[in-house]
């Protein structure tokens, strides 16, 4: 019995023009073209998309969750990056 999986592809779909591609799930395919076709058949049966990306799962570089604190928490106290940090008198408009 053949026990060798086809490679795994992660599938991203653009729901409509103007929106970004969004991860929807994964599937197996022997090649990239099959992955695109399969993505169309598996993930857009109800008109969910207008464009598909199929990315070999092995090609994705991902951050390590144990680095979450050092990577992402420093952004939490940079309040000056947000517009509400700055006090503008209410009578000043269009800013």
């Amino acid at each position: 019995m053949d026990r060798k999986d086809w490679p795994l592809f992660e599938i991203f779909i653009r729901p409509k023009n103007g929106l970004s591609h969004k991860h929807v799930g994964s599937l197996h395919a022997a090649d990239a073209r099959m992955a695109l076709d399969n993505a169309r058949d598996v993930y857009t049966r109800r008109g969910e998309g207008v464009s598909v990306w199929a990315v070999p799962a092995a090609s994705i570089a991902a951050s390590d969750p144990s680095d979450k604190a050092s990577l992402f928490e420093p952004a939490d106290d940079k309040v000056y990056r947000h517009p509400t940090f700055y006090d503008i008198p209410p009578e000043v408009k269009n800013i």
Partner: peptide, 11 residues
Amino acid sequence: PELEEDIALTN
């Protein structure tokens, strides 16, 4: 022969 193709043929 494979799940993905099952879905494709049915389409």
